[in-house]
Deep mutational scan, measured.
Amino acid sequence: QVNQQQLQQLMDMGFTREHAMEALLNTSTMEQATEYLLTHP
């Protein structure tokens, strides 16, 4: 289960819902999730 607010923040940054969910499931903080998305295009 992912934090919906964090998911929305990542989608607002331009990431897809699927990619943002993957990042949130594989990390524990927003900072890590953002870094994950930038390093796993």
Rank of each mutant, 00 (worst) to 15 (best):
Q6L: 09
L24N: 02
A23C: 01
N26V: 09
E31A: 06
M13P: 00
T27P: 01
A20H: 00
M13A: 12
L25W: 04
S28V: 05
Q1L: 01
M21C: 07
A23P: 00
Q9L: 03
L37H: 11
E18D: 07
T16Y: 06
H40W: 10
F15Y: 14
T29C: 09
N3Y: 04
F15E: 13
F15Q: 13
G14Q: 06
P41Q: 15
Y36A: 11
L38W: 08
T29Q: 06
L7V: 11
R17K: 12
Y36P: 01
S28T: 13
L25K: 14
T34C: 04
E18M: 06
Q6Y: 14
A33T: 05
Q6K: 05
L37N: 07
E22N: 09
V2W: 02
T29L: 01
Q4N: 11
M13G: 13
T34K: 15
E22D: 11
N3C: 13
M30H: 12
Q9D: 12
L24D: 03
Q9G: 08
Y36W: 13
E31Q: 11
M21T: 15
A20M: 00
A23H: 03
L7H: 12
T39C: 09
E31H: 05
L38K: 15
N26Q: 11
M13Y: 01
N3S: 05
Y36D: 05
Q9T: 05
T27V: 06
M30A: 12
E18R: 06
E31N: 09
T39F: 02
R17D: 05
L10W: 00
A20F: 00
T27E: 04
Q32P: 02
A33K: 02
T34P: 03
M11D: 01
Q8R: 11
N26M: 07
N26W: 02
E22M: 06
H40G: 11
M30D: 07
V2A: 03
V2Y: 03
T29G: 09
L24S: 09
P41G: 15
E22I: 08
L38N: 15
Q6A: 13
Q9I: 03
F15M: 05
Q9P: 04
Q8Y: 07
